[in-house]
Design a binder for these strands. Structure first.
Length: 109
DNA sequence: TATATGACGACGA
DNA sequence: ATCGTCGCCATAT
């Protein structure tokens, strides 16, 4: 069930969904997985985004975790900071502790 | 073959 | 609100 063709297709579907998240809104990893027809595979979404080449035009910054926070990246905090800037730049409000109100900025397909 | 490790998430205590 | 546990799954060791 896990041939490379399948994996590539899943990646493509995930990226297509992320690419459809409108400016000024955010979607959760689980939500993206669901929309891509990959229920319960939120981690796969995170993995795919992590592999994204820096030159990609995919709006990876519009994907946050279920708590409405920008998911930590281990030791590197720069990526997190970058994501926050990109979001604020398009009007998404971040609370003092870097939380996003999904009821207001969450993407509803 | 077996374990560990994540840009995750739902739940229960 | 916070924390640990467990489910999920591709990769790495």
């Amino acid at each position: 069930m896990n041939d490379p063709k399948r994996a590539q297709l899943n990646t493509q579907r995930i990226l297509a969904v992320v690419d459809s998240i409108p400016r000024g809104r955010v979607a959760t990893y689980g939500q993206v997985a669901q929309e891509a027809g990959l229920t319960r595979r939120a981690r796969l979404v995170g993995r795919v985004l992590g592999q994204l080449p820096s030159r990609s035009t995919i709006p990876w910054h519009r994907v946050v975790n279920a708590k409405g926070e920008i998911s930590p990246r281990g030791f590197d905090t720069s990526a997190v900071t970058r994501q926050g800037s990109l979001l604020e730049r398009e009007g998404v409000e971040l609370s003092r502790k870097g939380r996003i109100d999904l009821m207001r900025f969450g993407w509803r397909p």
